Simulated assay, not measured.
Amino acid sequence: MVDLTREMADLMAALRGGSQAAESGRGRALLFVSACGREGVSTMAREYARCEAAFAKRPVWLVDSDLRQQTQLEAVLEEPTRFGPPGPVSSASPDGSVFFALSPKALDPQGQPVPDSHYLIARPFLDKRMWVTRIRDHLLLPGQKARLFEQSSYWQALRTHAQAIVVDAPAFDRSDAVLKLAPLMDGVVLVVSEGEGEIDARVALKTEIEQVGGRLLGMVYNKSRSAAPPARRKVARA
């Protein structure tokens, strides 16, 4: 475990300036992503959500948008001393909308399609100041697949209940989810790690994010490796 409280406080201060979402009173949605895998995106998103929740007046939501590999809820559950005991499982959709679609649809005992929102749950931590989502992929039927909605009302619905929405996206080298999600967010944070990935891949991702209408707020440089002691992290404004 690496304690990034100080670094995340600096990141919060750097990202807070000029936020239109904050000025309007609605929750701000931030997307964390990397060009290549193993750059620490999930850790950065989780730590940012934890620190944001410590100061937020309304709940902070950590949304795991990786449709193939859901890991955030399990990671938080493994650190009860930092995130506290989990609350009960609840629906993660305030109005029945979700950011993905399942195909083919499952049918209930009456033969009616099961709503996709049935598969999206969340658990509260830190005295309900932080909520972490999970897609109940263990309930999927053989052959069922999930795809992201490029235009979803989910993010707008969740904004009315959240101070901030922190979205953990899969690395661009294995999924184009960032290009579908970036235009729906208030900003994108690009995570890069020492010794991982290629400079050209990072520049290409920055360009593609901007081309689809995403707003790149900055870059977080992860100077640590998985086996290294606590790392120094710094923010570069885009």
Results as ranks from 00 to 15, higher is better:
Ser153Asn: 01
Trp155Asn: 07
Leu31Trp: 08
Gly84Ile: 11
Asp66Phe: 02
Ala171Arg: 08
Ala101Leu: 14
Leu141Asp: 08
Ser42Met: 09
Thr43Ser: 04
Gln20Val: 14
Glu23Tyr: 07
Leu11Val: 14
Val192Glu: 10
Ser42Tyr: 06
Val114Ala: 01
Gly195Thr: 04
Leu62Ser: 03
Gln211His: 06
Ala201Thr: 04
Asp127Glu: 15
Asp95Pro: 01
Asp176Gly: 12
Arg233His: 08
Ala162Arg: 09
Arg6Thr: 13
Arg26Thr: 02
His118Pro: 06
Ala146Met: 09
Asp64Val: 02
Arg46Gly: 00
Leu67Asn: 15
Leu102Tyr: 07
Thr43Glu: 02
Asp200Gln: 10
Val2Thr: 04
Pro229Arg: 01
Ala231Ser: 03
Thr43Met: 07
Pro170Gln: 03
Arg233Ser: 01
Val167Asn: 09
Leu62His: 01
Asp66Asn: 07
Phe100Thr: 04
Pro104Leu: 06
Arg136Ser: 06
Glu52Phe: 08
Ser93Phe: 06
Arg6Val: 02
Leu4Asn: 10
Ser65Thr: 02
Arg16Pro: 04
Met130Thr: 09
Phe125His: 13
Gly214Cys: 01
Met219Glu: 00
Tyr221Glu: 06
Phe55Leu: 15
Glu74Val: 13
Arg38Leu: 00
Arg202Ile: 15
Thr71Cys: 07
Met44Asp: 05
Gly17Glu: 15
Gln20Cys: 03
Val63Glu: 00
Ala75Trp: 11
Thr81Ala: 15
Gly111Asn: 10
Arg136Ala: 05
Glu150Val: 14
Phe125Tyr: 14
Leu30Ala: 06
Arg147Phe: 12
Arg26Phe: 09
Ala45Lys: 07
Arg202Met: 08
Pro85Tyr: 11
Leu120Met: 00
Tyr119Asn: 01
Pro229Leu: 04
Gly218Tyr: 11
Arg237Val: 10
Ser175Phe: 06
Leu140Val: 03
Gly17Lys: 12
Lys234Leu: 10
Glu210Trp: 03
Ala146Glu: 15
Glu196Ser: 12
Ala56Lys: 13
Pro109Arg: 04
Ala35Asn: 00
Ala92Val: 00
Leu4Arg: 05
Arg134Trp: 14
Gln144Pro: 03
Ser42Ile: 03
Ala13Glu: 11
Glu150Ala: 02
Ala101Lys: 15
Gln70Asp: 07
Ala228Asn: 11
Arg237Tyr: 14
Ala231Trp: 02
Ile199Met: 03
Met219Ile: 05
Cys51Lys: 09
Asp200Glu: 08
Pro229Gly: 04
Met185Phe: 11
Ala164Met: 02
Val114Arg: 03
Glu78Phe: 00
Glu47Arg: 08
Ala227Asn: 10
Arg232Phe: 06
Ser117His: 02
Met12Lys: 13
Lys180Ile: 13
Ala122Gly: 03
Pro109Met: 09
Val203Leu: 05
Ala236Arg: 11
Phe100Ala: 03
Gly40Glu: 04
Leu31Lys: 06
Ser42Asp: 00
Met8Arg: 03
Glu150Thr: 07
Gly187Ala: 04
Arg147Ser: 05
Pro113Arg: 14
Lys180Ser: 08
Val132Asp: 04
Tyr119Ala: 00
Ala21Trp: 15
Phe100His: 08
Ser90Asp: 12
Val212Ser: 02
Leu181Met: 15
Trp131Asn: 03
Arg16Leu: 12
Arg147Asn: 10
Val191Ile: 12
Gly27Thr: 00
